[in-house]
């Protein structure tokens, strides 16, 4: 039997992370929540979840001294990381949420407000179907293509080469991407019932195939 990967859910002090932890436990993963750089360094895989504002999240990551260890583990050691919602946005160079804030800078893109017409309500909250654009192991055997979204900002540059799916709510935006070991979803897999759990299971079982 292959030993279980140790998955660390990075806690940067903004939100309730138990939903993500419970979903991983339900799937039998070996997961913990931590903001300790040593735990992050000893992990096999990382998850960066998130609900909240971009600027405050980056401030917390910097104040907790997590940027250095995350850069090392993700960019140098190439550990798989899954960003969820705000966590997915934090991978960007910058975000325009409430000003202009520098992100982790792993993805050369800017997070922008979903600029929609009056007939669309913002935040984009609820179940929406994604369109898988590039092969990705995240979406293997998902029972349906609806996922739960809660956000007002996103990656609206859908020409992005690393995208693996897109979604639409008055404007098209990137619903997921993968750049080597850096994987992210705008939706919340931990709240997306059967399909979401399947996505998390696929990440748990991900073995670094180039086509995740």
């Amino acid at each position: 039997m292959i030993p279980k990967d140790k998955i660390v859910i990075i806690d940067y002090g903004l939100c309730n992370l138990n939903s993500v932890l419970n979903a991983l436990k339900f799937l039998g993963a070996n997961a913990i929540i931590s903001q300790n750089p040593e735990d992050i360094a000893s992990a096999d895989k990382l998850i960066l979840p998130g609900v909240g504002a971009f600027g405050e999240a980056m401030k917390n990551i910097n104040d907790l001294g997590l940027k250095k260890v995350m850069d090392e583990e993700v960019l140098v050691k190439k550990k798989p990381i899954l960003g969820i919602c705000l966590g997915f946005q934090l991978f960007a160079k910058e975000s325009e949420e409430n000003g202009l804030f520098e992100g982790l800078g792993w993805i050369d893109s800017t997070v922008k407000k979903l600029n929609v017409g009056p007939e669309f309500r913002i935040p984009h909250v609820g179940w929406n179907n994604i369109k898988v654009t590039n092969e990705s192991c995240l979406f293997e055997q998902i029972p349906d293509d609806n996922f739960y979204f809660v956000h007002s900002y996103g990656y609206i540059d859908t020409t992005m080469k690393i995208k693996t799916s897109v979604c639409s709510h008055g404007v098209d935006f990137v619903a997921s991407f993968q750049k080597e070991n850096i994987i992210g979803t705008q939706f919340h897999p931990e709240k997306s019932h059967a399909s979401g759990l399947r996505v998390l299971k696929n990440f748990i079982e991900y073995r670094g195939e180039t086509k995740c």
């Binding site: 419970n22 339900f26 739960y148 997306s192």
Partner: peptide, 8 residues
């Protein structure tokens, strides 16, 4: 709920 309920 949160242990059983992977829904909002």
């Amino acid at each position: 709920f949160t242990e059983k309920c992977f829904l909002p």
